[in-house]
Computed example of a mutant assay.
Amino acid sequence: PEGSAGLAGAIVRETLLAGGQACRPLIARDGLSAVLIEPAVKFLQERGHTVQLGHELRSFTTGDGKASALNFGGEDVIQIGEGDVVVMAVPPRAAASLLPGLKTPTEFRAIVNAHFRFEPPPGSAPILGVIGGVVEWLFAFPNRLSVTISNGDRLVDMPREELAQAIWNDVCEAGGVSGELPPWQIVRERRATFAATPAQNALRPGPATALKNLFLAGDWTATGLPATIEGSVRSGDRAADLVLAAKRP
């Protein structure tokens, strides 16, 4: 009822209206870290680059319309060379704090994930969509059943045991399994996605900023898609294109 028809239309055009091949889902069987993050880090390290985790950017030093230094707190400052370009891929609230005046989405929606240590029955569908329940998507992995629930604001304050039992009841009915509640884990992210409403969609910035050598990436930027991995990838490709264009003589 509140979602942007424009964003929903983009999904339909790029999947259902594009034919069956465009609707085939890809499953990260060993998790997104193994599929996306670890190969990217390895790719960079093999080319002599460093990746520092737990290294929070606190502010930029600017001058002449450019970012001139990255400040990580105290004396931890990295100077930005004349030919260097920065791509900032951080959540929207952090981006707005680092770049005062940057317009970003201000409303967010929660995602709830549940994981159960339970062997799926033989022949279980890798992905099962559920209509009319608490569960929305049920994933069957070796030794594990996992659940994803979008727009889960109504569930973020529900007691964990109660929530796990409610989700497990749906899993049993939809997935054709039975038994007492197995070992479980609940993960709730209150600001997982921006609210995909027309008003919030209008607040999404493009990749360019007021600083000539600083570009944005992230699923919350103006990708034409809701907050999705596909949107993240698209934003990264677009930022990279702008970086290459900026570095050309």
Score class of each variant (00 low, 15 high):
P1F: 08
G3Q: 11
A5R: 15
A5T: 06
A8D: 02
I11L: 14
L17K: 04
A18S: 06
A18W: 00
L26W: 06
R29Q: 10
R29T: 04
R29V: 05
D30V: 03
V35P: 01
E46R: 15
E46F: 08
V51D: 07
L53S: 12
S59F: 04
F60G: 14
T61V: 10
G63D: 05
G65W: 03
D76Q: 14
D76C: 11
Q79D: 10
I80Y: 10
G81V: 08
G81H: 13
G81I: 06
V87H: 09
P91Q: 06
S97Y: 13
K103H: 09
T104V: 14
E107T: 07
R109W: 11
R109C: 14
A110D: 05
N113C: 12
H115M: 12
F116S: 03
R117C: 10
P120M: 10
A125D: 12
P126S: 11
G129M: 09
I131C: 06
V135E: 07
L138Q: 06
A140F: 09
I149V: 15
D153I: 07
D153H: 10
R154C: 13
L155M: 07
R160A: 11
E161H: 12
E161V: 09
A166S: 13
N169R: 15
D170Q: 11
G175R: 02
E180R: 14
W184G: 01
Q185A: 15
V187R: 09
R188G: 02
R188Q: 13
A192V: 00
T197Y: 03
R204T: 00
P205I: 01
G206I: 01
L214R: 01
T221R: 04
T228I: 04
T228L: 14
G231P: 02
G231F: 06
R234M: 14
D237L: 13
L244W: 09
A246M: 11
K247L: 12
